[in-house]
Design a protein around this nucleic acid. Structure first.
Lengths: 351, 351
DNA sequence: ATGAAAGCGCTAACAG
DNA sequence: CTGTTAGCGCTTTCAT
């Protein structure tokens, strides 16, 4: 059997309480006792039972991470940030893949509640539908990473997608493009709408007409990017650039472009969104709007763990907005107009 | 406060034991009692406390997943398999990123032991150094996914890397290539040695001299693939194909090839290993040896959970070897020689 | 079929 | 500074 606090106590010649005290390094224990207990622990290779401890403290040192799919590189990166920070706080994270299905999400929430996690982080994409009511009822803190639920009071950390869309589009405008297409993300996802909004803002500011024919619906995924680009190529004329709502779609768009014997950036300039690791490959060299993926996770985790740290401090929900960053690579081509200086600045930023 | 078994008992007018019995659906409870308890649970929105339960049963329904980095697409895919299967067994998985550092790994093992996980899955890459002695001492079952520890008796699931290396090289030989280079994986990783061994076997079988000048050292990563390819290009002559130990390195190799104005497959055919999602992109179309990533995780998890299921059954450690699968795409070019039929077969296999 | 009671391993007042 | 005593919420004999 595993040694318990009791065995340690007996071996060290003290009471369980004393052992417990050194375990939680209570200042008021004599050095003598501390030493004896330490020796005993080492000798027995004692390891406190987190279950028992959790049962009496009702803190488990575990948080849940609910996301649609860890296989998505973007999510994986965020998860990494969460995990690293949790480790700093001596907490563990339980992985929950929901595939975006509410049923699965609900089942996981139930499980996490049974395990008495200290809190949970939501990383799914949909802007509605998360049933956090159970968490609220049980007073389990939670934070949203990468999105917010408008009608729910909760911590959240997001990146400014409107700004990102603006940067991407504005960069294209700065390069001299006027007929700029957009391949949007899935409906019902706030990031989609925001990126489109940024696109519109940039166009408007430049006094460019927003042509509905220039926007095609996508869903963030590769295939739809490919199809959307083909539609655009078929239906519009004079298009010289496209801003895709995600890198995957931008990749799909590039394929469609190449398939027609066109070239990027010469014929069509392409800008993506996310900066997944493959965008960086020389083979691809995709200009894109980078999201601070790791930081999204790390900050979300920190917010959560801090709140767990002192539940008494009844601070209001915080909303952290992180800035995206334009990363200029090959697929958008070189600067054409007179504002070369600006362009250089951007380029500098991105390195 | 959270409702407990006691509250349920009181409300249902039965004893705690009875409630516990329906919780574990013990057959010998009257329907009457079962109904009353069920009602009470629903009314109170009762949710059993997994900590308390774990404390008395010493089963937590949680397993640990130790890997170097979830951000690696290959690992993420395996993790997904693990998680899905754990969910089927109503277990949760705790994510542990070690970055390959033994210190971190050790710290995590300690933590998992404190949390009293039912078992752990190792997914790191190094073939030595895992300190599983603590797990053995505590009788905590564990399995290795993607590798084995030679001197440790444990379950493991791996793919036949020798066969994979053979398939890749043999395919190239079938296409008429004779001077085939290899970019190896990191030393100390069994998969590296195995893939190289497969390469040698194929060459030997075809009666082709194994030229040391044709093999360059890599580390599975992109940059090293790029550098290794450049070295090969500089130092050797007549090379018409290269088998890279990983897709990332193959991608790097392709870059080096393109940079010199050469083409794949026309000038140099390239085959990778892993079949990460990007290999499939039209932009890349990398011929590669696919590993059943998801299955590796799923099978490892199933083995572990089955063993946890009945610890009494003292079955000997199992070693599952999964077959890799050659996926033929663009970077290896078309079949040149007379054995067109063979080639078609391969192509059929891969779809 | 059901209840009473003793634990599981730890923490947390409360005395001293 | 240290020990005693109750729990934390569940399972599990052992009676009945």
């Amino acid at each position: 059997m595993e040694p318990t606090i009791r065995d340690v106590a007996r071996l060290a010649g003290v009471s369980k309480s004393t052992v417990s005290r050194v375990l939680n390094n209570d200042p008021k224990v004599s050095d003598r006792a501390k030493g004896a207990v330490g020796d005993a622990m080492r000798e027995l290779d004692y390891r406190p039972n987190a279950l028992a401890r959790g049962l009496s403290t009702s803190r488990t040192g575990t948080i849940g991470l609910i996301m649609s799919d860890i296989t998505n590189p973007f999510h994986a990166e965020v998860a990494r940030g969460v995990e690293d920070l949790a480790a700093d706080y001596e907490s563990n994270v339980i992985l929950c893949n929901t595939d975006g299905r509410p049923t699965k999400e609900q089942a996981y929430i139930d499980l996490l509640l049974e395990k008495r996690v200290d809190g949970v982080i939501f990383l799914s994409a949909k802007m509605d539908e998360s049933d956090v009511s159970m968490l609220q009822a049980r007073q389990v803190p939670f934070v949203f990473a990468g999105r917010t639920l408008l009608d729910v009071e909760a911590d959240s950390v997001v990146v400014d997608s409107v700004l990102g869309g603006f940067q991407a589009t504005n960069h294209l405008i700065g390069l001299g493009h006027r007929r700029i297409a957009h391949i949007s993300g899935p409906a019902r996802v706030s990031a989609s709408a925001d990126r489109y909004e940024g696109y519109c803002q940039a166009l408007r500011r430049a006094g460019i007409f927003i042509d509905p024919d220039l926007v095609a619906d996508g869903d963030f995924r590769h295939d739809r990017g490919y199809r959307a680009m083909n539609q655009l190529l078929d239906r519009t004329t004079g298009m010289t650039a496209v801003f895709a709502g995600s890198d995957y779609m931008a990749l799909g768009a590039l394929e469609a472009i190449y398939e027609r014997g066109l070239k990027a950036p010469d014929d069509i300039a392409v800008v993506g969104f996310d900066d997944i690791s493959f965008a960086r490959l020389h083979l691809v060299q995709l200009t894109t709007v980078a999201q601070p993926k790791y930081d999204i996770g790390a900050i979300a985790a920190r917010m959560l763990l801090e709140r767990i740290g002192d539940p008494s401090a009844d601070r209001p929900p915080q909303k952290v907005v992180l800035p995206p960053k334009l990363v200029i690579r090959r697929t958008c081509g070189d600067y054409l107009g007179p504002r070369d200086f600006d362009s250089e600045t951007h380029r500098g930023d991105s390195q």
